[in-house]
Amino acid sequence: MQIFVKGLTGKTTTLEVEPSDTIENVKAKIQDKTGLPPDQQRLIFAGKQLEDGRTLSDYNIQKESTLHIVWR
């Protein structure tokens, strides 16, 4: 499925993911596209910070959802 990651600059990155992907895995995909290391990424969805060990489905993140990224 496709999801979007929007940064503070307003730039949006598209990712191809599975609902079973962990947040850690998603951060690795973001690094592949942007070069930003996972330890500098904070992902937010529906006002919650996403924890590395959880999956996208744990947070009810579905296709075409938009996550927000904040740099540490």
Rank of each mutant, 00 (worst) to 15 (best):
residue 1 M to V: 05
residue 1 M to A: 02
residue 1 M to Q: 03
residue 2 Q to A: 06
residue 2 Q to W: 15
residue 2 Q to M: 14
residue 2 Q to G: 04
residue 2 Q to H: 13
residue 2 Q to N: 10
residue 2 Q to V: 15
residue 2 Q to C: 06
residue 2 Q to E: 09
residue 2 Q to Y: 13
residue 2 Q to S: 09
residue 3 I to C: 02
residue 3 I to S: 01
residue 3 I to Q: 01
residue 3 I to V: 06
residue 3 I to P: 01
residue 4 F to N: 05
residue 4 F to A: 04
residue 4 F to H: 10
residue 5 V to K: 01
residue 5 V to F: 06
residue 6 K to S: 08
residue 6 K to G: 04
residue 6 K to L: 14
residue 7 G to V: 09
residue 7 G to K: 04
residue 7 G to S: 11
residue 7 G to W: 13
residue 7 G to I: 13
residue 8 L to K: 10
residue 8 L to A: 10
residue 8 L to G: 09
residue 8 L to H: 10
residue 8 L to P: 14
residue 9 T to A: 13
residue 9 T to D: 14
residue 9 T to Q: 12
residue 9 T to H: 15
residue 9 T to S: 13
residue 9 T to R: 08
residue 10 G to P: 07
residue 10 G to T: 08
residue 10 G to M: 08
residue 10 G to E: 06
residue 10 G to Y: 06
residue 10 G to D: 10
residue 11 K to N: 11
residue 11 K to G: 15
residue 11 K to F: 14
residue 11 K to Y: 14
residue 11 K to M: 14
residue 12 T to D: 07
residue 12 T to S: 09
residue 12 T to K: 08
residue 12 T to Y: 11
residue 13 T to F: 15
residue 13 T to N: 06
residue 13 T to Q: 09
residue 13 T to W: 15
residue 13 T to H: 14
residue 13 T to S: 09
residue 13 T to Y: 15
residue 13 T to V: 15
residue 14 T to D: 05
residue 14 T to H: 05
residue 14 T to Q: 09
residue 14 T to S: 10
residue 15 L to N: 01
residue 15 L to D: 00
residue 15 L to V: 08
residue 15 L to W: 03
residue 15 L to F: 06
residue 15 L to M: 05
residue 15 L to E: 01
residue 15 L to P: 00
residue 15 L to S: 00
residue 16 E to N: 11
residue 16 E to V: 09
residue 16 E to D: 12
residue 17 V to L: 04
residue 17 V to G: 01
residue 17 V to Y: 03
residue 17 V to K: 00
residue 18 E to T: 13
residue 18 E to P: 03
residue 18 E to D: 10
residue 18 E to S: 15
residue 18 E to M: 13
residue 19 P to D: 07
residue 19 P to Y: 07
residue 19 P to V: 07
residue 19 P to S: 06
residue 19 P to T: 08
residue 20 S to Q: 09
residue 20 S to A: 09
residue 20 S to Y: 10
residue 20 S to N: 13
residue 20 S to V: 06
residue 21 D to R: 01
residue 21 D to F: 07
residue 21 D to E: 12
residue 21 D to G: 02
residue 21 D to S: 07
residue 21 D to C: 04
residue 22 T to G: 03
residue 23 I to F: 02
residue 23 I to Q: 01
residue 23 I to M: 03
residue 23 I to W: 01
residue 23 I to Y: 01
residue 24 E to N: 09
residue 24 E to K: 11
residue 24 E to D: 09
residue 24 E to S: 12
residue 24 E to R: 12
residue 25 N to M: 13
residue 25 N to E: 15
residue 25 N to G: 10
residue 25 N to F: 10
residue 26 V to R: 00
residue 26 V to P: 00
residue 26 V to D: 00
residue 26 V to Y: 00
residue 27 K to Y: 04
residue 27 K to F: 04
residue 27 K to N: 02
residue 28 A to P: 00
residue 28 A to L: 15
residue 28 A to S: 10
residue 28 A to E: 10
residue 28 A to M: 14
residue 28 A to R: 13
residue 29 K to D: 02
residue 29 K to T: 03
residue 29 K to M: 14
residue 29 K to H: 05
residue 29 K to N: 04
residue 30 I to D: 00
residue 30 I to L: 10
residue 30 I to S: 01
residue 31 Q to S: 13
residue 31 Q to D: 03
residue 31 Q to P: 02
residue 32 D to C: 06
residue 32 D to A: 12
residue 32 D to S: 12
residue 32 D to M: 12
residue 33 K to Y: 10
residue 33 K to E: 09
residue 33 K to C: 05
residue 33 K to T: 07
residue 33 K to H: 10
residue 33 K to N: 07
residue 34 T to S: 06
residue 34 T to C: 06
residue 34 T to G: 04
residue 34 T to A: 05
residue 34 T to F: 12
residue 34 T to E: 05
residue 34 T to P: 02
residue 34 T to H: 07
residue 34 T to L: 14
residue 35 G to S: 04
residue 35 G to C: 04
residue 35 G to I: 02
residue 36 L to D: 03
residue 36 L to E: 04
residue 36 L to V: 11
residue 36 L to N: 04
residue 37 P to A: 11
residue 37 P to M: 07
residue 37 P to C: 06
residue 37 P to K: 11
residue 37 P to L: 09
residue 38 P to W: 13
residue 38 P to A: 15
residue 38 P to N: 08
residue 38 P to F: 13
residue 38 P to I: 15
residue 38 P to K: 14
residue 38 P to C: 05
residue 39 D to Y: 12
residue 39 D to I: 08
residue 39 D to K: 11
residue 39 D to M: 08
residue 39 D to S: 13
residue 40 Q to G: 11
residue 41 Q to G: 06
residue 41 Q to V: 15
residue 42 R to K: 10
residue 42 R to P: 02
residue 42 R to D: 15
residue 42 R to Y: 13
residue 43 L to N: 00
residue 43 L to I: 09
residue 43 L to V: 05
residue 43 L to R: 00
residue 43 L to A: 02
residue 43 L to K: 00
residue 44 I to Q: 07
residue 44 I to F: 14
residue 44 I to W: 14
residue 44 I to V: 12
residue 45 F to W: 10
residue 45 F to Q: 02
residue 45 F to E: 01
residue 45 F to T: 02
residue 45 F to H: 07
residue 45 F to G: 02
residue 45 F to R: 02
residue 46 A to H: 15
residue 46 A to L: 11
residue 46 A to N: 14
residue 46 A to S: 10
residue 46 A to M: 13
residue 46 A to F: 09
residue 47 G to V: 02
residue 47 G to I: 02
residue 47 G to D: 06
residue 47 G to N: 08
residue 48 K to M: 13
residue 48 K to N: 10
residue 48 K to R: 11
residue 48 K to W: 08
residue 49 Q to D: 15
residue 49 Q to S: 10
residue 49 Q to Y: 12
residue 49 Q to W: 13
residue 49 Q to R: 09
residue 49 Q to C: 08
residue 49 Q to M: 12
residue 49 Q to I: 15
residue 50 L to H: 00
residue 50 L to N: 00
residue 50 L to C: 03
residue 50 L to Y: 00
residue 50 L to P: 01
residue 50 L to S: 00
residue 51 E to F: 06
residue 51 E to C: 06
residue 51 E to I: 08
residue 51 E to Y: 06
residue 51 E to R: 07
residue 51 E to M: 09
residue 51 E to V: 07
residue 52 D to L: 05
residue 52 D to H: 06
residue 52 D to V: 05
residue 52 D to K: 04
residue 53 G to Y: 09
residue 53 G to R: 10
residue 53 G to D: 12
residue 53 G to C: 05
residue 53 G to A: 07
residue 54 R to N: 09
residue 54 R to D: 04
residue 54 R to W: 08
residue 54 R to L: 11
residue 54 R to H: 13
residue 55 T to F: 06
residue 55 T to D: 03
residue 55 T to L: 07
residue 55 T to M: 10
residue 55 T to K: 13
residue 56 L to F: 02
residue 57 S to K: 11
residue 57 S to E: 12
residue 57 S to D: 09
residue 57 S to H: 09
residue 57 S to G: 11
residue 58 D to W: 13
residue 58 D to N: 05
residue 58 D to T: 04
residue 59 Y to W: 02
residue 59 Y to M: 03
residue 59 Y to P: 00
residue 59 Y to V: 02
residue 59 Y to H: 03
residue 59 Y to K: 00
residue 59 Y to T: 01
residue 59 Y to D: 01
residue 60 N to L: 07
residue 60 N to I: 03
residue 60 N to M: 08
residue 60 N to Y: 06
residue 60 N to A: 09
residue 60 N to W: 04
residue 61 I to Y: 01
residue 61 I to R: 00
residue 61 I to V: 09
residue 61 I to L: 04
residue 62 Q to E: 13
residue 62 Q to V: 14
residue 62 Q to F: 09
residue 62 Q to M: 11
residue 62 Q to A: 10
residue 62 Q to T: 13
residue 63 K to S: 14
residue 63 K to M: 11
residue 63 K to C: 05
residue 63 K to A: 15
residue 63 K to Q: 15
residue 63 K to L: 06
residue 64 E to Q: 08
residue 64 E to V: 03
residue 64 E to P: 03
residue 65 S to A: 12
residue 65 S to T: 10
residue 65 S to M: 13
residue 65 S to K: 03
residue 66 T to D: 03
residue 66 T to S: 05
residue 66 T to K: 05
residue 66 T to Q: 05
residue 66 T to Y: 08
residue 67 L to M: 05
residue 67 L to Q: 00
residue 67 L to S: 00
residue 67 L to R: 00
residue 68 H to Y: 11
residue 68 H to D: 10
residue 68 H to K: 08
residue 68 H to W: 10
residue 68 H to S: 10
residue 69 I to E: 03
residue 69 I to P: 01
residue 69 I to A: 04
residue 69 I to V: 13
residue 69 I to G: 03
residue 70 V to R: 08
residue 70 V to E: 11
residue 70 V to S: 09
residue 70 V to T: 09
residue 71 W to M: 14
residue 71 W to F: 11
residue 72 R to F: 14
residue 72 R to Y: 14
residue 72 R to A: 15
